[in-house]
Design a protein around this nucleic acid. Structure first.
Lengths: 192, 192
DNA sequence: GTCTATAAGATGATAGAC
DNA sequence: GTCTATCATCTTATAGAC
């Protein structure tokens, strides 16, 4: 039981490192088992297929993101501060992964075929992200109810755009630009 | 000479269709030659490797994008109208490709290894995109010079975010949201 | 649960005829 | 320039011993 958990987690963490640095399709099962130091049949004992390992990878990644994000964000004293802090935590997150970008988006781009287990998992993770921003913007009482959807959409666009461009340019500037744009967006709305 | 051009273009257009719908890594040489109706050695006569075909694909895609964009955008009467029209043309473009997203971004995500011919081509294409927005925003005379970089960055973030989310959700709503956000961003700056 | 050895098929690429 | 036939390698996955 202890050994079981350990091997399984070793495989996931090795796969995570390789998927993030090389991409899912460019990482073969052989490289994963070699660098994890386990036998091929051990991997297939814990995961029926590479796709199932991919699903476990996305789920683990999502749990870690949400836990880290909530811990950091909830130190903000109100919804406005919390929203800004999501963008600041995203900078830490991107730095930690060496600018690997968004794992959900990357899987969706590498495996565009709809309906597969892995594609569906990635879509679900992106949807969780969208709803998180919608919820947070909903708590901004200085924004009229009729404008909240527009603001939430714009914030989500800036978040995705910033994440993508940090991946492309391999530095934090785009995410900082996105955070600044959100701050200005909220300022504009207090004026209106 | 005539036949040469024709076969080469058939290969590129077939590869384009498959790369956009399935992704680069998930499209094998065998499928390309089969659907293009040419022999394997013919493909390797025109392109030394799959990567070279990938570079030709990106270049062709970029030429087509810039030609279509400029034709549509230059009907706008001033820089402000032109900027909005980029986002409107992007909607047409995304619809035409069945929401395939940005070919440059997708290649960068599928082949993150820096320094390869294909990766460098994609980075160059994205840079052209960034400079295009910088140039257009630079022509907006109602924006103070000191703010132009910030505005251009935000516009570029919304463009990339919109393109990505249209790919994920397979509809035009995110790009329309992005266009609306740009319109509001420019309105805010005229007020300030 | 973990191992070694192997299978069946796909991959990118080449040789040599025409 | 285009073809057929072939190559070495890599891919995911499984069988069966321990």
């Amino acid at each position: 039981m202890q050994a079981d958990t350990s091997v399984r987690e070793t495989i996931i963490s090795t796969a995570t490192r390789l998927f993030l640095s090389q991409g899912y399709n460019q990482t073969g099962i052989n490289q994963i088992i070699e660098e994890a130091g386990v036998a091929k049949a051990s991997l297939y004992y814990h995961f029926p297929s590479k796709e199932d390992l991919g699903v476990a990878y996305l789920r683990t990644r999502s749990e870690k993101w949400r836990a880290g994000r909530d811990g950091y964000v909830n130190e903000g004293k109100d919804a406005r501060e919390k929203l800004i802090r999501v963008f600041e935590y995203r900078c830490l997150w991107l730095e930690q992964s060496d600018y690997a970008g968004c794992s959900y988006t990357r899987i969706l781009t590498e495996l565009p075929q709809q309906g597969t287990k892995l594609n569906k998992q990635a879509v679900a993770n992106k949807e969780e992200q969208r709803l998180y921003f919608q919820d947070l913007v909903g708590q901004l009482d200085f924004i009229p109810d009729g404008r909240k959807n527009d603001v939430a959409n714009t914030v989500f666009l800036l978040f995705d755009g910033g994440t993508l461009q940090c991946q492309v340019y391999r530095n934090l500037q785009p995410m900082e630009n996105a955070r600044n744009a959100v701050m200005e967006l909220l300022r504009c709305h207090t004026k209106a």
